[in-house]
């Protein structure tokens, strides 16, 4: 792959925050990728949608609340955030419950979007 080529890179998030480190460390890779000038998108599937839940208060578990970072992604030109419609419904969530504006897609449409990627990173 030649230098300077823009590739479509999708981050697939399927884990809830705090119970494991994956959500946080995935976000760290997203932020680094922003510096590489790629076509970045994030997909939140299954329990991954919990990462975006409003009102996270982590003082009691003595862990850093990283949910505000999702709101900062826009400043890094990362604006393609996709959420699985079925995942929201299964968890009693609506788009208003999320910390950022997202595009809600039916599962299979999200799958079609994945088909168009050059690289998929999952944690």
């Amino acid at each position: 792959m030649a230098e300077g080529t823009t590739r479509k890179v999708m981050f697939v998030n399927r884990t809830a925050p705090y119970g494991t480190v994956y959500a946080l460390e995935s976000l760290e890779v997203v932020l680094i990728t922003a510096a590489f000038d790629q076509d970045v998108s994030l997909a939140f599937i299954g329990d991954g949608v919990w990462q975006l839940k409003k009102g996270q208060q982590t003082k009691g578990i003595e862990t850093k609340n990283f949910s505000p970072t999702y709101r900062a992604l826009e400043g890094y030109d990362i604006e393609k955030l996709y959420v699985e419609r079925e995942a929201l419904a299964e968890r009693g969530l609506a788009p208003e419950d999320l910390v950022v504006d997202v595009t809600v897609l039916p599962a299979r449409e999200l799958g079609a979007l994945m088909d168009g990627q050059d690289v998929i990173l999952s944690f």
Partner: peptide
């Protein structure tokens, strides 16, 4: 080294395979 090495590999290799 830094995470940039992962991103470089993801976009520079023909395929990225994730084991986890």
């Amino acid at each position: 080294s830094g995470l940039g090495q992962l991103v470089e590999s993801a976009i520079g290799a023909d395929r990225l395979v994730v084991f986890g």
